[in-house]
Structures are given as C-alpha cells and as structure tokens.
Write a protein that binds this DNA or RNA. Sequence first.
DNA 1: TTTACTCATCGTAAATTTACGATAGTTAAT
DNA 2: ATTAACTATCGTAAATTTACGATGAGTAAA
Lengths: 94, 94
Amino acid sequence: MDTINESESLAKYAKALSHPTRLAILKHLENQSCCYTADLVEIFPLAQSTISQHLKELKNAGLIQGELNPPKIKYCINLTHWQQAQVLFQQFFS
Amino acid sequence: MDTINESESLAKYAKALSHPTRLAILKHLENQSCCYTADLVEIFPLAQSTISQHLKELKNAGLIQGELNPPKIKYCINLTHWQQAQVLFQQFFS
DNA sequence: TTTACTCATCGTAAATTTACGATAGTTAAT
DNA sequence: ATTAACTATCGTAAATTTACGATGAGTAAA
C-alpha cells in the first residue's frame, strides 16, 4: 500500500474511532467477541436506528463485519482490517 | 486517567487524525520537527485560512503547540500529548 | 508613523454528521 | 398466509465540519 492510500486508510479508521459511542461499541465487541444490535440498544441510551447507523459506519470503515443469524445479525470485529488499523496507527506514531 | 476520560481523549485524538490534510500536517511536523503556517500553505492546495483552521483543531486536540516567533508562529508536535495518544491507540488495539 | 509580513478570526455557504421516529425488509415460527 | 422478532433504511432537523475570501491583530523594519 502506497503512502497516499495509507494516509486515506488511516484517516478512514480514525474517523470511525472519532465518536465515543463507536469506541464503546468496539470496546464491547473486543470483550464479547461478537454481539447483536439489540444488545447494544440495551446498553446505550440511544435509539435503535442510531445504533444501527453507527454500526453501518464501523462496517463501512471495515472495522466490523455482520454475520447473518436470522433474524438477528451478529457483529464481530473484522480482524484483518482491525490489525491493519493497528499497524497504521502504530506506524504513524513511531 | 479513568476509562471514561480515556475514551473521550481517544475519541478527541481520533477526530484530529480523521482528516487527510491534518494527517499530512502532522506527518510533515514529524519530519521537520517544526514549521510555520506559510510553509504548509505552500505545500497544500488550500487557502491560508483553511490551513489555520486545521492547525487550530490540532492545537485544540493537544497534538501540536504554537511557539511565538514574531511575526511568525512556529508549530511543533506536543510530545507529551503525542505520546499519550500513542499509548491510548496502542492500548485500544491490544 | 507607516508599511510589510504573518497568521488568526469572522462571516458564510455547502456538505456531512448525529440523532430521532416511522417505516420497510427479512426470516422463523405459528 | 400471518405474525412476531430483529434490524436496516428513510425522512428530517439540528449541529458540526470544511472550505473560501475578507478582515483584523500583532510585530519588525523603514
């Protein structure tokens, strides 16, 4: 990956991490490994649609992935991109 | 620092890093150690006011600091907060 | 004091983000 | 086929972000 794309990817990941709710969702996914939207709606004082929106952004950034488990959707961390983000932040700060 | 403040700090740092221009500014400061606003205006195809705005956000996030060097202002990385951010991201991804 | 230089701030417009309630879609069970 | 459960999407309003040009503030030199 060239420098330009690295920078764009890093900005993309940083944006995904730039909201406390999304950080908390990721933190929760780290502990639980996976969870459903409804679990998060119970935890956070936010509407279901708002949680869904945050999940969508995390998914678009590549940090999580949704696995169909009808009628639920099980969200997990996307380890590949997660580790890529880890490396990019690490490189950036070193 | 407790978990709540850590999360807020991390979100704040992530937000500062969430724009490619700001990433590039920080990258440049890493290499040059310091620079002036005018230097950045020459490098980036953006108005001076826009650069100044990005610098203000980086300063508010604590990642850089401005040192008066009249009539210029020399911007440098704030090593204390920089390292704090580094640790927070590192902790988050581990 | 005037001029020149550097940078911040103001005012503003367009785009994006964040939140909500309401609605639609999907699948399993009845 | 209907219903129930779970989640995404739509529509929308308020807030924030990003960009610009214009203006203002501060200092050094003439």
